[in-house]
Amino acid sequence: MALQEVKEFLRPESSQAAVELLAKYGNRAVILAGGTFLHGLASRGLLPNLDALIDLQQAGLSYVKSEDGALALGAMATFADLRDADQLKGTSRFGAVSDAVRYPPPQIQNMATVGGSVATATSLFDLPVALMALDGTVKALGPAGFRAIGLDNFFLDYFEPALQKEELLVEVLLPKLPPRSASAFLKLETNANDLALLNIGVRITVDESGTCLEARVVVGGGVGKSPVRAVSCESILKGKRCSEKILAECAQAVLADVHPVSDHRASAQYRAAVAKVFVRRALLQALGRLGLTVS
């Protein structure tokens, strides 16, 4: 499909109006968020035949809002918006998001959006991995109203999100986390304007003594159809104080859940090796944000 066949460029002024357009056009329309991946998809022949683009810029979704400790990220908030938002700046809790949005070059940071990066549904993007590590939930609006979908269940297949045809991703909600929570994100890339060869988002919550109450380890980039939760790592961490030994065990365990793929950019074995390294490094970074050192 070539984009030149698109006949209409629609600019709804509310998310409700956007949903109505989705209902009207069915799968003959796609949502235009930041637009940073659309041309790449089109040139690779991955775009379906379309009559219309629905540009969300005027739908009032470019917000970052604190809601009682939780954080609501509007679908059209850009990476730059997240980078500059006071609610995120310098926080250890949302460190993974701040890390992730800084990887791409400025032009992408200025255009790429929360909604676009999540709803495209690919494991190659960075922000979804960071949001998954923070237990993010998608808020979708459909004809029947709002519904919440956990990011863990959101990525069904390559470019197939768990959204109905007429549903719109309007927000990603990051729930309130207990105190002493920190997160971090790491990406393996060949140059500074790359899709991840491998990326990883972690979050850890500890008690006063530094014992891990809860952890999330999420791996993306060349690991199949969606980012993967490494629950084996998470269960190793839970209830323990992080030591080098625990981290090493945890790094080893990542491959129980994550099964990297081979492609022309890297082999599965290499991605697996880096996944192990990155688990440790990302956890160290998150722990560092809590002022914890590991020995």
Binding site: G40, T190, R265
Partner: peptide, 8 residues
């Protein structure tokens, strides 16, 4: 340039 990488 997404797949052919040169140094930035």
């Amino acid at each position: 340039f997404l797949d052919y990488k040169i140094p930035t």
